[in-house]
Design a protein around this nucleic acid. Structure first.
Lengths: 124, 124
DNA sequence: CCTCTAGGTTGACGTACATCTAATCAATGT
DNA sequence: ACATTGATTAGATGTACGTCAACCTAGAGG
């Protein structure tokens, strides 16, 4: 079930030109249905920090063993949040030996940022 | 209870320089706690479309009477979603005569966009 | 003043979510 | 092969969310 979300987000990159922007035109229902889960995934303080730790990591990736001790939560809970980020298409996971490494998907982040971008001067 | 969220978001604009960006440094727990509700508010397809309709409205504002018929939902449900957007500090409401008009808060949108903005070239 | 209409609020109900403990799977080292 | 460490999965529970039906509030107009 994690694959549909990732594929849907990837496909959306194809049928949208570049920067639709919330404020330029009404986002279609289909686009909203696809992108809302990504925002929802970022709508939790723990996941927002996890996303930031992954995106700002040196080398572009982080071991789960470095993420878990950063919170007062159990390992399974962190794993659950990482799964949510994964299913939202925001991150990728790769197992290398004993540890699992997470990596951000910059394209999706850029797409979400573009959607929220509004003109510097308020449109009259 | 809606005032705390708005004030918290406004305050955050003061103590943060301009564009912290997820990928430049780990977002502090406090910032995550304040901004996550804004992302959560956008994490629903209906609210994402409502936000878009409000932000893209001619004249910068929309009447609720124009928003409600755009969905297969009852009036109270739309009202509830608008309240969620209001409490997240994403929109402002103003009653003028019989109708209530909603207006976007560009500053908050810009802040969220800045947080998600990543470098065009992957940072090593 | 009283009624009508448009919005917003409250309470209730079903579902989804965040979190935990316990069990399972994967990889390394003795 | 066995035990150990790391990560995910499964089951359970309390809380929050989305939705609707019913009620309350505020202008408009007779």
């Amino acid at each position: 079930m994690s694959k549909q979300a990732s594929l849907a987000l990837r496909d959306l990159g194809a049928d949208t030109p570049c920067c639709p922007s919330l404020a330029q035109q009404r986002v279609p229902a289909g686009t909203a249905t696809v992108l809302a889960p990504a925002f929802k995934a970022l709508g939790d303080p723990v996941r927002l920090q996890l996303m930031s730790m992954i995106a700002s990591a040196k080398g572009g990736e982080v071991c789960v063993c470095d993420l878990t001790p950063a919170f007062d939560l159990t390992g399974p809970t962190i794993s659950h949040h990482l799964k949510t980020l994964r299913e939202a298409g925001l991150v990728d996971a790769e197992r290398r030996g004993t540890w699992v490494y997470y990596r951000a998907r910059p394209a999706i982040l850029r797409q979400l940022a573009a959607l929220l971008t509004v003109e510097p001067t308020t449109a009259a």
